[in-house]
Nucleic acid binder design. Sequence first.
DNA 1: TCCTAAGCGAGACGGTACGTCTTGTCTTCCA
DNA 2: TGGAAGACAAGACGTACCGTCTCGCTTAGGA
Lengths: 193, 193, 193, 193
Amino acid sequence: MPTKTVDRRIERTRQLLQEALIAVILEKGFEAATVQDVIDRANVGRSTFYAHFQDKEDLLLSGFEHLWAEFEKHLNAASANNEGPWGLSLSMFQHAESQRRLYKAMAGKQGGNIALTYIQKYLSGYLTDHLKQQLAKRKKGFPPEILSYHIASSFISLLTWWLDNDSTYSAEQMNDFYRQLVEPGVNMIMQNG
Amino acid sequence: MPTKTVDRRIERTRQLLQEALIAVILEKGFEAATVQDVIDRANVGRSTFYAHFQDKEDLLLSGFEHLWAEFEKHLNAASANNEGPWGLSLSMFQHAESQRRLYKAMAGKQGGNIALTYIQKYLSGYLTDHLKQQLAKRKKGFPPEILSYHIASSFISLLTWWLDNDSTYSAEQMNDFYRQLVEPGVNMIMQNG
Amino acid sequence: MPTKTVDRRIERTRQLLQEALIAVILEKGFEAATVQDVIDRANVGRSTFYAHFQDKEDLLLSGFEHLWAEFEKHLNAASANNEGPWGLSLSMFQHAESQRRLYKAMAGKQGGNIALTYIQKYLSGYLTDHLKQQLAKRKKGFPPEILSYHIASSFISLLTWWLDNDSTYSAEQMNDFYRQLVEPGVNMIMQNG
Amino acid sequence: MPTKTVDRRIERTRQLLQEALIAVILEKGFEAATVQDVIDRANVGRSTFYAHFQDKEDLLLSGFEHLWAEFEKHLNAASANNEGPWGLSLSMFQHAESQRRLYKAMAGKQGGNIALTYIQKYLSGYLTDHLKQQLAKRKKGFPPEILSYHIASSFISLLTWWLDNDSTYSAEQMNDFYRQLVEPGVNMIMQNG
DNA sequence: TCCTAAGCGAGACGGTACGTCTTGTCTTCCA
DNA sequence: TGGAAGACAAGACGTACCGTCTCGCTTAGGA
């Protein structure tokens, strides 16, 4: 059975462009980065860029999706210790620690909000699923969408802060801080809703 | 000594431009707004725009500063009930409620991050001053900059969420939610630092 | 009565561009000339070019129309001696002689065929009007459109040859050659049609 | 010794491309035709095109050379009646009549000037050879290069007119028109030079 | 009440980046 | 292993904004 073989240049070009974008973002930020900056650094023709990606957002997103796929691998590999929201946040801090460069470009303030918006949505969805049952029992409780939103955005705030300040705290320390800040409030709400 | 009298047209033009920018932001967002959009709506010449403002960021900021001055008036007027961090946050929710249109344009996701960055800095500064003494007593406590950052960014997250979702919760309710979410964690840290 | 005043920069820019185009055509030909070549030489911004002209054809045509207007002035000034087709052709040879540079760029093989097509149409129209009556008398004569076409295209061929070969023949000599070549055939046809 | 056999695919590919080019020229003209248009219509890869031809001019020229070779066959076959300049022109009108499609693409205004330039040169050369002796006798005569140029370009003008207007005149009629227009002037010059 | 400096609209201008298109070369894969 | 398919670098195209500028007109405020 003849497997359709792919031209290996294609993937190479995509990676050159993704790497070039990261480099440019770290230099001057996502907004200020121009397509010309990226293709110059990648040594790639203008039309080649547009053959692969619609625009620089699309390019960033493609890189993010790759990073996210790796994160999910990491998550599954460590699944034993990382269950529940606090396990998930720890995993993400750890993954960010091991891919600091990429995370700074995508989730730092230099990056656009594309990646952060994605993460926000993912976490909110996860939390809504996870807290649904407990919240359902409450009669006239705390608005669950606000709760989910807060847990997710607090995490993102801390993550961004960590990345942008080149903080030397470890992933585990950051997750501890996160839990100390957020968990008490959440627990209060879950008990008294 | 002759008092230098100011041409009243100047202030009028500035306001026309500020209002036009707000309107355009609410329609298509700050990023997508062009100077041409703004001056068309304000019926103002291009060079007039640049005579008053460096660019659209500058224009937004000028409007924000005006809004902020009004907030401080509001804050002082209600100072009796609004002391401490939770009083400050309540004042801001209330002010946002009374100026919903402007807040949506500046602090909603349609606005840039200029205003939010400003608020973030202001709150962090306020909190650092306010919590400094208590935190100073702790020996090896929780990092104060993270604590301040969290309290401020949680507030901003809720405010933005409130504005963007056209939520019908009152300012007082929103502040309650905010306290329920954030206060327990802060108290734990302050006691055990 | 207030005459609508025109911004003098506009005409200046148009002329800068027209002159730059002529220069570039003489260097590398109309087809090879790029908009970038022209605006670089004219020290004009790209968008300014497109504010004035649709494309380089439009620019050439605008210059040609100006040249043509001058030709008509020249024609009227010398109208006494230049009546009839052979007077018209003499006038054009003379005008070309006095504006050799422009004619080379527009009617030489370096120029596109825009100007030549225009001249061809103009001459054919003129000749059709002029020969109509005589030809109308013939019963089943020579096709008049072919006759007009021949007289016009022969003229254009000679003109182009003259320009491209930097020939030293005078305008009057060229017109003599033209008459010697074309007049006998025309006369035969007009008599025997 | 094995006779070098030519891969029949090669010739087939060349013909596919030539035919595709003709079709595209007739649709949108030579200038507007792109290599992509041609290879799409020929169902051929881009590199294949460039393996056979330098560019679209080269391709057109190759087709023209083939056509020209056929013309020469036609010329020799009818040589008895077609001697001298007026026999040559008749032959070409006849050949154009029998290959109207190809001639329209190459010698019509849709085709570039490549073919016409070639024909012009060929005719000028032929005429120079043919008229040389007679002109040599004259002392201070009419410039022979102008005479040759005129005879050739008048022919080309008529041919192009005929093709572009889908005229129903026969080749013989066209040649008659051509002779009526051009011969008298030439004869006058030859007698009095 | 007039005069004059300045605010202003209108918009031309030089630039820069965009996303598209075409060219001619060069690499990869397949028959 | 030679030729077809098509990925690629290069660069021109026409459009959209930007921030600067020049131009006359209106108009406010001091004389």
